[in-house]
Design a protein around this nucleic acid. Structure first.
Length: 222
DNA sequence: GCGACAG
DNA sequence: ATCTTGTCGC
């Protein structure tokens, strides 16, 4: 698929903050999804050589059948350190390389990390969604920011995630008795719709099938 | 100043 | 994320 970059990636944290604060205004948190949704993609990262090489993997699955359709892997030198709040500057460049190799344009992308559940409301799902202009959902395995009440143990249970009086996402139990996932709008997807798609993509395990497959690809070097 | 802190 | 074996539990 085609990709139109919005800015360069060799940045200081001060420049990164300026970009986040500028681009956050373009984020759409209501549904602007091409329906019916036929393809859902998952992206995940792996690192090699003490973290100096970034490896991104993309898996495109059919929806709602969740059958694997296409995969791609991309490698490139890591150019930004891991700093909480700036994950997209470290991971998005390699993810874009991998997405460029994909022939099927996904209708929705599930990202490994937060969407607007971020200190400046601009997590990796927002950043990626804005650049590729495809609906994105933030699916994080742990909390970055926000508070929430205890989530009941049953699959499908969820609680709102809030910060400074704002709703920024939801904490969702995708499998009974396992740790919940942190869901938030990336771009062009509302929170309720995000919860719905994440549940439809987790028929059996805690993590969405999309990210599970991308995860295997990103780990299985090659 | 003291914690918290996606992957 | 990554370094790493066996082990506890459904």
């Amino acid at each position: 698929m085609k990709i139109n970059q919005r800015h360069t990636w060799a940045l200081t944290t001060a420049e990164a903050i300026a970009i986040q604060e500028k681009l956050r205004g373009e984020i759409i948190t209501t549904d602007r999804i091409q329906t019916p949704v036929r393809y859902v993609a998952g992206v995940d990262m792996g690192f090699e050589a003490n973290g100096t090489i970034s490896r991104a993997a993309v898996a495109v699955l059919s929806f709602p059948s969740l059958q694997l359709q296409e995969t791609a892997i991309a490698r490139r030198p890591t150019s930004f350190p891991y700093i909480p709040g700036f994950l997209s500057f470290r991971e998005v460049p390699a993810v874009l390389d991998a997405l460029e190799k994909i022939n099927i344009t996904p209708d929705i992308i599930l990202c490994d990390g937060q969407g607007i559940a971020h200190p400046r409301r601009f997590g990796i799902a927002c950043h990626l969604g804005l650049i590729v202009d495809i609906p994105t959902i933030g699916v994080a395995k742990s909390l970055l920011i926000g508070k929430h009440q205890e989530v009941p143990a049953a699959r499908g249970s969820w609680q709102l995630l809030t910060d400074k009086g704002e709703t920024i996402g939801a904490v969702l139990r995708t499998r009974t008795g396992t740790k919940p996932l942190y869901i938030s709008s990336g771009h062009r997807v509302s929170l309720m719709t995000a919860i719905d798609y994440v549940l439809q993509c987790t028929p059996k395990y805690r993590l969405p099938e999309t990210t599970r497959i991308a995860d295997k690809l990103a780990s299985a070097k090659q």
